[in-house]
């Protein structure tokens, strides 16, 4: 209890790109490597601005860090599964970028696995859009490659 009290008095303020202020405990903040180094660099009483993270993503990251630290090993697994299930692929992408920027190690382990599972059977066109990749093949180059690997196109999901 004493620790909790001291934590709240040391709480760190984070300002998201859409202007929302979050107050988090040092335990939570330290699990985001980028913030950890910002705390070291600046006076901890200052509000830390996060120009690449919006409120939804930060609230999700905090929800994850609080959720997984509060329970037992098997419960963590269950919590993680539910946490990922609640997110759409589009939300996962945004969250992944935020997690990459804030360097939340545990989510950096977990999220690529979740995303990989979800995109396994997606079409090439879907994945170009998802990862923001421009198709730089000429139509004839693409047709040639596709012909060579036609067998790999069986069983692709509808977009």
């Amino acid at each position: 209890m004493a620790e909790k009290a001291s934590e709240s008095s040391n709480s760190i303020s984070l300002n998201t790109v859409d202007g929302k202020i979050f107050k988090v405990s040092p335990t939570i903040a330290n699990q985001m490597q980028t913030i950890q180094s910002l705390i070291k660099a600046y006076d901890s009483s200052r509000v830390i601005s996060l120009p690449h993270v919006n409120a939804f993503h930060l609230s999700k990251i905090i929800e994850y860090l609080e959720g997984k630290s509060a329970t037992t090993v098997s419960a963590v697994k269950e919590f993680e599964a539910q946490f990922m299930k609640d997110l759409s692929l589009k939300q996962l992408k945004g969250l992944l970028i935020a997690v990459g920027y804030l360097k939340v190690n545990e989510l950096l382990e977990l999220m690529p696995k979740t995303v990989a599972k979800l995109i396994e059977n997606k079409s090439v066109e879907f994945l170009r859009k998802f990862f923001g990749i421009v198709n730089d093949f000429t139509p004839s180059e693409e047709a040639k490659i596709r012909e060579e690997i036609a067998w790999a196109f069986d069983g692709v999901d509808e977009d």
Partner: peptide, 17 residues
């Protein structure tokens, strides 16, 4: 993410770019 995908998906993704 790509390293976690199965071989079949990766062969297909050779045609992305």
């Amino acid at each position: 993410i790509l390293l976690l995908l199965p071989h079949r998906t990766l062969v297909r993704l050779c045609s992305v770019s």
